[in-house]
Amino acid sequence: MNVQQIKVLMIRELKDLRFNGQVLLLFFTAFAMIFFIYVLNNLTITFSNEQITFFKGMTSLLSFISILVTMYTQGNIMVEEKEQGTGILYRLMKIRRINIFLAKSIVTYSMSYLLFTIGMIIYGYSLVQILMASIFTIPFFCMWLLIGTAIAEYAKNTIDVSLYGWPIMIVYFLIEGLVYSSILNKLTILFPNYHIERGLTLIENDDFTSGLKFMIVPFIWGGIALLFLIKRRQKKVSIEA
């Protein structure tokens, strides 16, 4: 790992991102979602003696941030190297892909984390809760960073990234709906949504030890995403050879 190289790549990425319309749109949409979810979350409707609450505070917000910002931004900025033909220089300079991935991931992660922190402050989390939630969400954000990178591996351009990201987003929110409705609860336990929801709820209730235990499944999913990415990369390298 070349720290200086990562730093240079990161600075360039930041200079570039300031004017990246697609990424800015996603960032500000996620930013608007903080307030939108906050308002709707506090709005409870009673229907046939049943109370209906829209969204579930930070859990819902985290899903929006991780998909809109983490996955899409990572996918977009990774695929742009291919789309613009700028990645050729890195290949010729033999800059390791891990360095490029890390430079971009740090930028994307920072953006996501910034939004997440703003959200937690607005939603009234204490400093300790923010700290614990930050640790708790690391594997989850990493999972989305890897998914974004995997999408970029398959995609040729940013249009492809949007196209391939949609099914993932739909499936994720579908599972999220199932988690909240408690239908097929046994099956949802396999997915990270369930664990994120449980973990964040426990952190909200200051039960940090139990809350952090729910990091394990998102961590496994992150590992699966990593394996998938490595496999894809190996296949691509063998085809190129």
Binding site: Q5, I11, R12, D16, T86, I88, L92, M93
Partner: peptide, 30 residues
Amino acid sequence: GVEDLFFYRTNMGEYKRLTPEQTIRFWCDL
């Protein structure tokens, strides 16, 4: 290896949101 050589290839691109000055500075740092 190839890293010791300068290559100008027709399909090489540049970062579209950077300026020529920023691009040159980036290459210098790289």
